[in-house]
Amino acid sequence: MMLGKVIRKYRKERNFTQEEMAERLGVTASAVNKWEREVTCPDIALLAPIARLLKISTDTLLSYRENLTPKEIKELMEKTQKMLKETSYGEAFGWAKKQMEQYPNCEDLVLNMAACFEAYAITHEVPEAEKREREICALYQRLLESSEESVRMRAASGLVGYYRRKGEYEEAETYLQYFSIQNPERKRMQAQIYGETGRIKEAYKAYEELLFADYQRMSAILHGMYQLARKENDRERAGRLAEKQGELARCFEMGEFYEVVPQLDFAVLEQNRELALDTMKKVLDSVAGIGGFRQAWLYEHMTFQEMQPELLGNMKKQLLQSFDDEEIYGFLKEEPRWQALCGKQAENCGTSGKAEEK
């Protein structure tokens, strides 16, 4: 098969138009058309870039390689930043564009180049600024087609930021669709847009929802680390992690119940009678305010489902019943305070351990 037919075959398989292929190689669409019609041949220097773009893995004679290594990308980025300091923006961008044309399928290179020149253009006066902005946006747009979710999201984030800076908020919002609903970055960027367009309550609500979700996530992480420390019998680490859980609840205005309850398991682990009894009392006393975060100023724009009094009553009964479990709390059985708590259980549950023995 002639070279022109090979180019045409694989270009169509990659779903490129002649114009798209030309743009990525830095040539004209007319040149690509002539190659495919066998009127002319590509310059020898373009053979490797063409192979990379079309992903022709059989082209071993040209030492086909689709991507650069992380080290090679780092070296290219360091040279780019050096050129931005020592030469003009246009010269540096032209050089960078040639590197991207040499490796048109190296998405990490394109992404890093786009971010680098975008950051420079934000903080410096750049000649032909609008033209350069369009070129950077074109790079991000191209990366939206990536098969890698992380690449698509970084490109979309760049475009959201670009259109926010231009005040084109509706356009900025269209790129949020590249983030899943569950991705907190989507909500954070939406909150920024709300704030910049005068939708202050919506912005606060979105930020507060992020804070509340982050507390739950970080609390679960600390609890998981605490369980690991317990498993390894690392008491010192376990104690510090239990304290951190309480500090986290305090920082996020979750209420006293969430501040003190992590200490209870650690007190049992340590068989620390004073700490256990003090914490048990604090836990019981704070049950009524377990939903205190609903009134916290930090979440005043959020709407929470009201907690039913019956639910709080049942929760307190369950806690009292658990405190009467001698397998866990038996080391407290000689303590009058523990016996008093068990007495409260009898009042709340209508039965006691002694009644059951009779």
Rank of each mutant, 00 (worst) to 15 (best):
M1R: 04
G4H: 13
E19M: 04
E20G: 06
M21Y: 06
R24W: 04
A31T: 15
A31I: 12
V32S: 07
N33A: 14
W35P: 12
C41D: 12
P49D: 15
T60R: 11
R65N: 14
K79V: 08
T87N: 15
S88A: 13
S88K: 10
W95S: 09
K97L: 14
Q99S: 14
Q99W: 11
D108S: 03
F117E: 09
E118S: 13
A121H: 01
E125W: 06
V126M: 06
P127T: 10
E128W: 04
K131D: 10
R132N: 07
E135H: 01
I136S: 04
I136Y: 02
A138R: 11
E148L: 10
E149S: 09
M153K: 07
R154I: 00
S157C: 04
G158R: 05
Y163W: 12
K166M: 13
L176Q: 13
L176G: 11
S180C: 05
R186M: 11
Q190P: 03
I193P: 09
G195Y: 10
E196M: 08
I200N: 08
A213H: 05
Q216K: 11
H223G: 10
G224C: 11
Y226L: 14
Y226P: 05
A229T: 07
K244Y: 10
E253G: 03
E256L: 00
V260F: 01
F266L: 00
N272F: 03
N272Y: 02
L277N: 01
K282Q: 12
D285E: 15
S286Q: 03
S286I: 03
I290D: 00
F293P: 05
W297T: 14
H301C: 15
M302C: 14
E310S: 12
G313E: 10
G313N: 04
K316M: 11
G330W: 02
A340D: 15
A346E: 15
G350F: 05
G353N: 04
E357T: 08
